[in-house]
């Protein structure tokens, strides 16, 4: 079994993983990091989203062995100490969650989205060359890789808008 090392939420972890293990399964089953969720296991829901080397990324479609040395930040590692990350706090304040299963992925995705918005157009962007203005439509499109079956989308939008402001 190959051995991999990762930095997860600021802490180094390492261990042997099955060469077939996805990054998601390695995190959840090998390293007991259950923050990223398994909703579909096929890149169709976004629940497994983490920040991988700073960018939002689906861990279910990544082989662990291909990401040896990577820095992973999950929803659990976003805040400072016991303090919630502003995005997480806004989710809570706007009730941008219900069952909570898609939530860590949504929060990571939102943090990544806000960081990358500047300079990245989206499908919702009219003028590809203009600076990004995070309108409601832009936020919705940029967050569309994270499904929520409970229908917490309006609360999530409100939360992201509050932080983006």
């Amino acid at each position: 079994m190959p051995r991999i090392s990762l930095t997860v939420d600021g802490s180094p972890v390492s261990g042997d993983v099955d060469v077939r293990a996805t990054l998601l399964d390695a995190l959840r089953e090998r390293f007991d990091v259950t923050t990223p969720k398994k909703g579909c296991d096929h890149g169709q829901c976004g629940a497994c989203t983490v920040l991988l080397d700073g960018r939002r990324h689906l861990t279910c479609l990544s082989l662990a062995v291909a990401h040896d040395g990577a820095e992973v930040v999950t929803a659990a590692g976003l805040g400072e100490g016991d303090e919630l990350h502003p995005v997480a706090q806004a989710f809570l304040d706007h009730d941008g969650l219900q069952c909570g299963y898609c939530t860590p992925g949504q929060v990571c995705s939102a943090v990544g989205m806000l960081a990358e918005a500047d300079g990245t157009p989206s499908h919702a962007t009219d003028d590809l060359e203009a600076e990004t203005e995070l309108t409601d439509e832009e936020i919705r499109e940029r967050m569309s890789g994270n499904l929520c079956r409970c229908g917490a989308y309006p609360g999530i939008l409100a939360a992201i808008k509050e932080v983006a402001r």
Partner: peptide, 15 residues
């Protein structure tokens, strides 16, 4: 707000 909300937004609520 949800009592368990902080656990959920940080992914710490165990399923």
């Amino acid at each position: 707000s949800r009592v368990e909300g902080a656990l959920k937004v940080t992914g710490r609520a165990p399923y």
